[in-house]
Nucleic acid binder design. Structure first.
Ligand SMILES: [Mn+2]
Ligand SMILES: [Mn+2]
Ligand SMILES: [Zn+2]
Ligand SMILES: [Zn+2]
Lengths: 131, 131
DNA sequence: TTATTAATTTAGAATAATTCTAAAATGGAA
DNA sequence: TTCCATTTTAGAATTATTCTAAATTAATAA
């Protein structure tokens, strides 16, 4: 895979994704990008996502079962999903896990992904009634 | 939610799911159940899955982004996904994780799910060429 | 510059998983 | 048995995603 052509559509999509911490869906990417640059089609969003995925520039999350979410954060990280607002937060901090010898013998383990569930700071406040 | 009607279709689906460790897709459930009991429609598989899900008897996995997989294992557990054969294995063993104080302060964490990735025993062998 | 061309964009069609609908069937209470 | 709320069902509808093939264009070379 060589260098890619710099089209205005691609630059707009890449610009939207840059530093984006929202783990957006294709629909969200399309809406937002089209807003600034109406010369972007849904097909191009799909194509560009595909290209970025293949190059390892973004990764695909399967947290949501109806729509795929995309993650442009290049660092290895885990996620926290708020059970109330459903937002997905990056956990960049390293989380150590302890695996038994038996487990390490049964499988050749290359890596792991952790999803934490609970309530984010905002929803925590709402629940308690305190602000 | 009260007791449910015992129909032959439901019993067949529940029977197939009982102790099933394969995390089957709807398609897999439908094929297998229809085989023994042709009086089962795809719609009923969807309906029954829905009912079992609402009752907490099965849970939905989002490991695969194209098809949902279902898990009748009632114990809290994690998963190992083989990068080669794509099979999903239950890890019933407790995995401890270490979270920083800062993290515990930022979020009200209720639980976590870990997906381990690597090669299962079978695929490990194939890769090494030894059998 | 301008010409060339392979890569990209695009609208719309195709596909595939899931949900919906509304009519027919039936488990289980009375 | 009768009754009826619940369930089943086929097929239609919906939704996300992929495919197609024609039109456009970025990048390269003349
Ligand atoms: Mn992330
Ligand atoms: Mn499982
Ligand atoms: Zn929240
Ligand atoms: Zn394997």
């Amino acid at each position: 895979m060589e260098n890619f052509k710099q089209t205005s559509q691609r630059l707009a999509i890449i610009d939207y994704l840059k530093d984006n911490k929202n783990h957006p869906t294709v629909e969200e990417i399309f809406k937002s990008v089209k807003d600034k640059n109406p010369h972007v089609s849904l097909a191009t969003v799909y194509n560009t996502i595909d290209m970025l995925k293949k190059r390892g520039i973004i990764s695909e999350l399967t947290i949501n079962s109806t729509k795929r979410r995309y993650d442009p954060n290049p660092n290895y990280h885990h996620h926290f999903i708020c059970l109330s607002c459903k937002n997905v937060f990056d956990i960049e901090e390293k989380i150590n896990i302890t695996l038994s010898e038996e487990l390490k013998n049964s499988y050749k383990i290359h890596g792991y992904e952790i999803d934490l569930y609970g309530y984010c700071n905002n929803c925590k406040k709402e629940l308690s009634g305190i602000d």
